[in-house]
Amino acid sequence: MYRIVEARTVGLNIRQFTVKAPRIARKQRPGQFVILRLHQQGERIPLTIKSADPAAGTITIAVQAVGKTTSLLNCLEAGDSILDVVGPLGRHSEIRNYGTAAIVAGSVGTAMALPTAKALKDAGNHVIFIEGARSKEMVVFEDEVRAASHEAYILTDDGSYGEPGLVTKKLDELLAAGRKLDFVLAVGPVPMMRAVAKITAPLGIKTMVSLNSIMVDGTGMCGGCRVLLGNQSKFACVDGPEFDATLVNFEVLMQRNAMYRSQECRSLKAFEQHKREELAALRDGLAAKEKETAQLHARLEMREKDETHGKPEAVHVAEEEKRHA
């Protein structure tokens, strides 16, 4: 059980959670992700870590409600818990002084790109951050984007905030103005990452993309997240999530990400009809789990105090448990 210590809405259907997860907080590096599961019937979904505080033992994630699990997660508040959080998973971003580094992020992808942007800035790069969103309500973490970069550009598709247009427009402009880019990281919807790669790859600019393929275990065990790089198959969870954009087959990635679309729609629809019941059931489940864990800990403490630590006691514990069951 992983306690949510802070929860707030940062954009339209986008929430930020700070979660107690000391082991992950100690080890997290930019670009890595966690897999979480909300309840006993829940699915496992990957989410990139936005930041970590090893001293406080917390990690921060940003979540856009798109399916059932993310919608349910976004109903949670500080004081609630997440049943399972595992990580940090995947390889971390390669941080070097490339020279000028452009970070191109779409909406919630900004959260994923932020730690890498910060690290690149700290490593001496001149960091250009281009954040795009559909509209004003989906522009997130603007202050942090500005803090993590030397130049920041905000664009909205509908022009309701910042400059109108897509992130690729800004990228084109910069390049047309003769700006030399040595490194590009694109994080966001697949069509956006593909469009960025189409611009930068012909120019020979090292371009990385952070891929969001469907995962189950996140440790390389199932291969469901495999992506096609040239004619080679790679697992996004252990070989990625960042890959050289020039090699990625984005069409296959989009096809594979659509594999469970009909089931996902069905789940989301059912959830929207029974939101309140689902949330109540989740909280009941967590409370039950908490009680169970507390009992187990109490029993362990009791046993540690009990010097005999032998056979009669072990059986006694078992009987005791039966009685409480």
Binding site: Q41, E43, E264, R266, S267, A270
Partner: peptide, 8 residues
């Protein structure tokens, strides 16, 4: 057990 369980 989908949709009782979420994983498809």
């Amino acid at each position: 057990k989908f949709p009782e369980f979420d994983e498809p």
